[in-house]
Structure formats: structure tokens, C-alpha cells
Design a protein around this nucleic acid. Structure first.
Length: 188
DNA sequence: CTTAGGATCGCCT
DNA sequence: GGCGATCCTAAGC
């Protein structure tokens, strides 16, 4: 099978995919921007939803790579992941922030705010801006409503510990575009 | 600038 | 019953 989308092989380990996703343009129904922040999660990872095996919520993480895993966070927000590794493994990449490029007025309406810098600077925020909900769970990333566009040229990617977790806090599986104003938090 | 609390779903013990 | 891959608002220093 071919799991290459936007020049990235999604059947490879999630930390590799997470790094390569920086700079890729993500659109949902034609609205979105450039990915500037990601986090990798793996089956052998206490911080991962897949760590304790399949459940009704995380089952799409155990499906084939190159598809979406959307979950409800804190009962309120939606968060978007891209599934990685071989089918059945249970790995993924959390999309944490975008630099808005396309459909900014629509995103402002959905978010109820003006400041472009805050439209997509967090996993819950970007899902609200792009209109991602449960309906977008377990869908292929190379077909509508999703669209991924390759990185035009090499970028300076930095890494560090993941955010908002209490387990495996030392693993440097958060990746970001160096110097971006659109990160959910700065790298130290 | 930092900290605290509320919203409230899905899964855990 | 508790807590989390979150975000927003308000209050304190």
C-alpha cells in the first residue's frame, strides 16, 4: 500500500511524521493554513490515548495510516490527529497550531474573534476555526474535505517536550516552526 | 505578568 | 468519583 500524502510517508514512526508535517498546508473544505506545531504519540507511550489499547473513542488510531483521529477534549473541544505507522499499531500526530492562510474571515466568524494570531494557535482552537468535529473522525487525509499540500522548501524545525500531559513529560516529541508567531506556546 | 475556576465528554479505578 | 493531548475569563501580584 502507498501511504504517502503531501510527500510524507504516514506508515513511518509518528515522531518522523510530526517533524515532516511542519510547513505542510492543511485545508478542510478549503479553509486552513500552514502547520506550525505538532506532537507525536505512540502505542508504547504512557501519554498516548492508544497506550491502553483500542476503545470506542480511539479506534481510528488503530486503523490504517494517513487517516484522521478526532476526539473530544475536556468534554468541550475537538482535537485533530493524523494516524501513523502500520495499520493496527496505534500511533498518531496531534495537530497543535496553524498559521492561518486561507479563509481567514470564515475562521474569524467561527472563532468569534478578530486576532489572526489566536485563530488556530492550539489544538482545540484550530478545530473550531476549521469546523472539525466528530464528523471528521476516521476519514482519509488525501480526499475531501481534507487537503494536504506539500512543504515548498526546507524549513527550520525545533523540538521540545510535549504540552498539557503529566506522563512521559521528558520525551521531546513536540515540533514547531522556528520563530513562528502562531505557536500555542513558545519553545524554551 | 501568573493563577484559578468553570465548562462537561469518554474512559478509568 | 476522578481526571484529562483545552480554552476562556476574571482576579491577584
Amino acid at each position: 500500500m502507498n501511504y504517502i500524502i503531501a510527500g510524507i510517508d504516514f506508515s513511518t514512526p509518528s515522531h518522523q511524521v510530526a517533524r515532516q508535517l511542519i510547513g505542510v498546508t492543511l485545508l478542510v473544505d478549503g479553509i486552513g493554513g500552514r502547520i506550525v506545531e505538532t506532537e507525536a504519540y505512540d502505542r508504547e507511550d504512557p501519554a498516548s490515548h492508544s497506550f491502553s489499547g483500542p476503545t470506542p473513542r480511539n479506534i481510528s488510531m488503530f486503523g490504517p495510516p494517513g487517516r484522521s483521529y478526532v476526539y473530544r477534549s475536556y468534554g468541550i473541544h475537538w482535537c485533530l490527529n493524523f494516524v501513523c505507522r502500520e495499520s493496527g499499531h496505534g500511533a498518531g500526530v496531534l495537530i497543535r497550531a496553524l498559521e492561518p492562510t486561507t479563509g481567514i474571515d470564515q475562521m474569524r466568524q467561527r472563532r468569534g474573534m478578530e486576532d489572526v494570531r489566536l485563530l488556530c494557535s492550539g489544538p482545540g482552537r484550530l478545530c473550531q476555526a476549521l469546523g472539525v468535529t466528530r464528523e471528521h473522525n476516521d476519514m482519509p487525509l488525501d480526499a475531501p474535505p481534507f487537503e494536504l499540500l506539500p512543504v515548498p522548501s526546507a524549513l527550520d524545525v525545533i523540538s521540545g517536550p510535549r504540552i498539557g500531559i503529566s506522563k512521559a513529560i521528558d520525551v521531546p516529541w513536540r515540533f514547531g516552526l522556528a520563530g513562528s508567531r502562531f505557536l500555542s506556546q513558545p519553545f524554551r
